[in-house]
Write a protein that binds this DNA or RNA. Structure first.
Length: 226
DNA sequence: AATACTGGCAACCGCGAGAAA
DNA sequence: GTTTCTCGCGGTTGCCAGTAT
């Protein structure tokens, strides 16, 4: 006997979420909390699969999410954790407050993998791709290409550890983190989140910077929607 | 200006683990 | 102990914006 699908897919909407759907989901979860994702779409009035609702919430709508590029520190931590845990993105994400497994996975696949390869490090094993020292002596990857025109030469003893000096040299490429709330979350005042039972001790409200607050103020017109 | 290509990211899919019956 | 169900995870896909030709 096969497993039943997580939901009846007939008549369900797929694809990108609209602001209206986001609003419904946020309203529902802020009111009722997270439980029984299978029932959420029906109760919230959404033509979505429960699984889709959960993903949308955990990856995009959760108010404790950081958004924007990973910081240098976060990126180094991801590399360190990946060397220990492998592709266990949720475990890695649990060490990075405000970051989702999906976000980290995407960042790894689109940015970090390439950086490591350019540096002569195998992103899977975290070991040098070749026996010879990485970067400089690589015939395929000229140092200029690797480090950019403005950087000075890197030590030829690029260690296996991703937290080595090789990485700090790349710091200039990495933008500072830009924390943002998901657009839909702007629909809610911060005070509305009071009493919201986040079990995670990583709740980021405390670290919500003045910058974001200013941004929130700028988005205040959206509050008029309610 | 139009088209092709590429990279980044949100979302989907299928599977496994664990809980509940 | 077995079956059924839900949730969460990791891999993959597809869309879209930006860039190159």
């Amino acid at each position: 006997m096969g497993r039943q699908p997580c939901c009846d897919k007939v008549g369900l909407k797929k694809g990108p979420w609209t602001a209206e759907e986001d609003e419904k989901l946020i309203t529902f979860i802020l009111t009722n909390g997270q439980c029984c994702w299978r029932a959420v779409p029906k109760l919230a009035g959404l033509l979505r699969c429960g699984k889709s609702c959960r993903l949308r919430w955990t990856n995009y709508l959760r108010p404790d999410l950081k958004r924007g590029l990973l910081s240098d520190d976060e990126e180094q931590m991801v590399i360190e954790l990946h060397s220990q845990l492998g592709n266990r993105w949720s475990k890695i994400a649990s060490h990075l407050p405000g970051r989702t497994d999906n976000e980290i996975k995407n960042h790894w696949n689109t940015h970090i993998k390439k950086k490591l390869r350019k540096m002569g490090i195998d992103p899977v094993t975290h070991k040098p791709l070749r026996e010879e020292p990485c970067l400089h002596s690589s015939p395929q990857v000229p140092a200029e290409q690797v480090e950019g025109k403005n950087t000075t030469s890197i030590s030829a003893t690029c260690s296996v550890s991703p937290s080595s000096s090789c990485f700090s040299e790349k710091a200039e490429e990495i933008q500072l983190p830009r924390m943002e709330w998901p657009e839909s979350a702007y629909l809610y005042g911060l005070d509305d989140l009071g009493g919201w039972d986040f079990t995670s001790d990583h709740l980021l409200l405390d670290s919500f910077s003045q910058c974001q607050r200013a941004a929130l103020d700028q988005e205040s017109w959206k509050f008029e929607l309610f």
